[in-house]
């Protein structure tokens, strides 16, 4: 009984962590700047590759993972300053430009590093509850996803940067008039977004085969979580991941991965028919 319950929870936690970690960076960039970064998958891939390279260069895994996140964040900031910045008034165009960048990054990696890259063995052990056995690293990922949510909350609600960022999000012109430096806020926010994408890759690096196109395998989950969550990361992403996590884990358990993926999508299409602005839009409307 307890074992069954824990097994259900484990399934859910696994999906929830995947949704949160793959979507958090995308959601921050969308929420702050109204831009959907279609190169999101490539920043995840960047996190994976840097982690693996650093790990094989002799760094301990957690440190290598930190490298993955930081490098992705720095590249993101560079990209924001050079290419994305002139496009804030043209969100649809920024979508296309980031898609172009994504193509270049994937194929460039393929040319530079070939179609495979040395992977990392999954750390940690398995543990058992009742007759089932579970991977402890999956629990680490679940904990990490909660930490990411906590980090985002503290960052936006408890720091000076967060106050400036929220002010800029609500009214860029006014915030600037009050002395907030919009350019820095945007560059840092973009960097945090891509850094979280890199972190996602870093955390999943030990669980996957390393190929340059692997970023795409995170995209569907990242997109649907952001679409269902809506524009406000703090209000939307968590609830969206819980709802979608329950749906997905349930379908996975009963009907398998394929139905899970398709069912998730059907659920998303049904949800947006009812809540076009996602959870956060709905919550904002309810409370305003």
């Amino acid at each position: 009984m307890v074992a069954d319950l824990f097994s259900d929870f484990y399934q859910f936690a696994d999906v929830f962590a995947f949704l949160i970690l793959s979507a958090a960076g995308l959601a921050i960039i969308f929420g702050m700047m109204g831009v959907i970064n279609l190169a999101h998958g490539e920043f995840i891939m960047c996190g994976v590759y840097v982690t693996s390279a650093a790990y094989h260069a002799g760094l301990p895994l957690p440190l290598a993972q930190a490298c993955g996140a930081v490098v992705a964040g720095l590249i993101g900031m560079l990209l924001e300053v050079t290419i994305i910045r002139p496009l804030y008034s043209r969100p649809l165009d920024s979508l296309l430009v980031t898609w172009g960048i994504s193509l270049v990054a994937t194929q460039g990696t393929l040319i530079a590093l070939g179609s495979t890259f040395p992977g990392i063995d999954t750390p940690g052990h398995s543990f058992s509850v009742g007759e089932y056995s579970f991977s402890s690293y999956r629990m680490v990922l679940f904990a990490a996803s909660l930490c990411v949510l906590g980090f985002v909350y503290v960052l936006f609600m408890r720091t000076r940067f967060g106050v400036h960022a929220r002010a800029t999000m609500q009214n860029p012109g006014m915030a600037q008039a009050l002395g907030v430096r919009k350019g820095i806020i945007y560059a840092v926010s973009f960097g945090i977004g891509t850094g979280l994408a890199g972190l996602c890759g870093a955390l999943y690096a030990p669980t996957m085969n390393l190929i340059p196109t692997m970023g795409a395998s995170f995209l569907v989950e990242a997109f649907v979580t952001v679409v269902v969550g809506g524009a406000n990361v703090l209000l939307g992403t968590g609830p969206a991941a819980i709802a979608l996590g329950v749906i997905r884990a349930g379908l996975n358990a009963w009907y398998g991965q394929v139905v899970g993926e398709i069912g998730l999508l059907i659920a998303v299409v049904l949800i947006i028919r009812v809540l076009p602005d996602g959870f956060s839009g709905w919550l904002t409307r309810r409370t305003s």
Partner: peptide
């Protein structure tokens, strides 16, 4: 790969 990179550059460049 290079053909696809060119497509990516064309997309970003055109926009």
């Amino acid at each position: 790969q290079w053909a696809l990179i060119l497509m990516g550059v064309l997309l970003a460049g055109t926009v």
